[in-house]
Amino acid sequence: MKLLVLVAFVFVMSGCSRNLYDWGGYNDHLYDYYSDPSTADAFLISLEKHLAKIESAQGTPAPGLYAEVGTLYLQKGDEYQATQFYQKEHDAWPESRYFMATLIKSLNKRKDTE
């Protein structure tokens, strides 16, 4: 009987340790960025690197990460990269499509009027 309980326990516990998504330390980096905005570049680099890793492993990117990279690029003035990453978010998450399409459209409009 004790063996049965142990097996059940191991079975249960092995499921609990896995994460739904790999966030690549997003919350820690976001915390650092809010505490010190000068860490924006480090935040961008770490997020982008993490997402490239997810892509090569053909995994699911955590919700919103592509879009956050896009926004960090936008704040650096790189509208091209911003659009690229908003598009990636759009393609990865159906729920993001309305918002991402709005952002991409406004960026394209800005580009056309320049």
Binding site: Y33, T71, S96
Partner: peptide, 8 residues
């Protein structure tokens, strides 16, 4: 849930 990017 899908969660919208908080910083964006």
């Amino acid at each position: 849930y899908y969660v919208f990017p908080v910083n964006t």
